[in-house]
Computed example of a mutant assay.
Amino acid sequence: MGFRLTPQDTSFFTLFTAQAQLLVDATSELTRFLEVDPSKRQAVADRLKELEHAADDATHELINRVNSSFITPFDREDIHALAASLDDCMDLIEETGDLIVLYRVGDIPEGLAEQFEILARMAEVTAEAMPRLRSLKDLKSYWIEINRLENQADTLHRKQVAALFTNSPDPVELIKVKAIVDGFEDAADAFEKVAHVVEGIAVKES
């Protein structure tokens, strides 16, 4: 990388880390859907909405920082892409969690606990990686692990959908539950998108 005349604004890394930590909080909150009575699920959805608003604020702060900074730690379009992909993870988690309440799902679908575990691990690995953007070192293990977890999520998703079509006698319930398991699979894909953006930045800046 070339010599920089102006110090880089280190707050970018703080904001990326804050975005990722909110994802850790959100995926942890998901497990409460498994623990509470169905009548209490709205409170879980409300908390996810609060976290989604906080993530939006962090995203807007990042964009404002890009627009007002003379120099950035890496290309502006990469900062935009990373902020947006982190925000997508949160949006999908919040939206799909809300479906559990809106669709008045009775029993939690089989395999959802395992989906939540995978998403929680993806969030943790992502949050651990964000501070390393400062040096762009020791990131390869991050995107390798995210890819492994996404493959695990894909396999689980296929099993869930197959079980739904095999065991669900009610077509309306099938549609509801499939939308939920599909939404959380989309969230896993979004975490992989974050890793792809980080990998692209690391390759470009190395």
Rank of each mutant, 00 (worst) to 15 (best):
L5P: 00
T10N: 01
F13H: 01
T14L: 06
F16S: 07
A18L: 01
D25L: 13
T27R: 04
L30C: 10
E35V: 11
K40F: 13
A43N: 12
A43W: 08
L51F: 07
A54F: 02
A54I: 01
D56I: 13
A58K: 11
I63P: 00
S68G: 11
S68Q: 13
I71G: 07
F74T: 01
E77N: 15
L82N: 05
A83G: 01
A84F: 04
D91Q: 04
D91T: 10
L99F: 12
L112S: 05
Q115P: 00
A120Q: 12
R121A: 14
R121K: 14
E124W: 05
V125L: 15
E128M: 09
A129G: 01
L133Q: 12
I144F: 14
I146W: 15
N147S: 09
R148P: 05
D154M: 06
T155M: 13
R158L: 15
R158N: 14
A162V: 06
T166F: 13
N167V: 12
P171I: 15
G183P: 05
G183N: 10
A187K: 11
A190P: 07
A190M: 11
H196I: 05
V197H: 13
V197Y: 12
V198S: 06
E199P: 04
A202Y: 05
V203G: 06
